[in-house]
Simulated scan of single mutants.
Amino acid sequence: MLETLATALPHFRNTNSGQFFLMAGPCVIEGEDMALRIAEQVRTICDRLQIPFIFKGSYRKANRSRLDSFTGIGDETALRILQKVGREIGVPTVTDIHESDEAALAAEYVDVLQIPAFLCRQTDLLVAAAQTGKVVNVKKGQFLSGESMRFAVDKVQQSGNPHVILTDRGNSFGYSDLVVDFRNLPTMRAFGVPVVMDVTHSLQQPNQSSGVTGGQPQLIETIAKAAIAVGADGLFIETHPTPATALSDGANMLQLDRLQTLLEKLTRVRDAVR
């Protein structure tokens, strides 16, 4: 599966290492210096551990609880930063889109277009993303089973694009919390596409009374280990030098200086289950 994905991603490093791949970066692009610094640090770690790396950063956050929540520094400004990260650091990049007319714009700057979980059933959005020819990463809706994501794969592939990734980010069971059902990973992998576990978003505690999403970052290692153990092809981890000062989703992000130790543990888990 990774070999097929690699054909669509320039600079996709170490694809024959037998390792999982990593999508990692800040929740949202806050500025050029920070994006470049995070990307460089993560790439250095991933090169050392032979983990293929895709830099993640949202150019705009559309799904916010409160009207006064931070949404971005400007669409084209953030997209140009993503493009610069890809060129200067030499890694593929991924960002999420929310409307059909955003697909072509974002595709000019990044290598992977991500469909947010709440929008994974939006046919026009999936088709527009597919028609760019970019890799399409579809996040499984919190309200869907793994089996249901077969139709998202069909929409992309039947639109002429074979390059699909599916990402799980937990399911909603009750109020203000998510639960990970690890059965979803092998179920979705059976569709013949790479499957990713979104470690940090699956630990969100959304819809808090304050209007600011909470999280359980102390469980990041637990969720990541379990995902690798059941055969996830990749992991999605949002990371930031100081999550407490991050402008979005700081409550569930991994502190950047803890990433290397986590990845070292996860490579040992991968070696044990291969």
Rank of each mutant, 00 (worst) to 15 (best):
K225G: 09
T213M: 04
L144D: 03
P162V: 09
Y109R: 04
A129S: 15
F182H: 00
P10M: 07
S210E: 06
Q204G: 05
D257C: 11
T123Y: 04
T239V: 14
D198I: 10
V180L: 05
P162L: 03
V85Y: 00
S210W: 07
L166M: 04
A152P: 06
D177C: 11
D124M: 00
L144W: 06
V136D: 04
T71E: 15
E108D: 14
L36N: 08
T222M: 04
L266T: 11
T242A: 14
G86S: 13
D47H: 06
T15F: 02
L203M: 07
Q205E: 14
L266V: 12
G174C: 02
L67V: 15
S202Q: 10
G141H: 07
K140I: 02
N184W: 02
F21T: 02
A152H: 01
H11S: 12
R60Y: 00
V269S: 09
Q204I: 03
G215F: 05
T44R: 14
T71P: 03
A24I: 03
R37Y: 08
F191N: 01
P162S: 07
H163M: 06
N207C: 00
Q260V: 05
Q157F: 06
D33G: 12
V153C: 12
V42R: 10
Q158N: 14
P186H: 05
N137R: 05
N252I: 00
D111L: 07
T44G: 09
F151V: 13
Q131T: 07
K155N: 11
R268N: 08
F191R: 01
L2W: 06
L259E: 11
V153G: 01
I45R: 03
Q205M: 15
R80H: 11
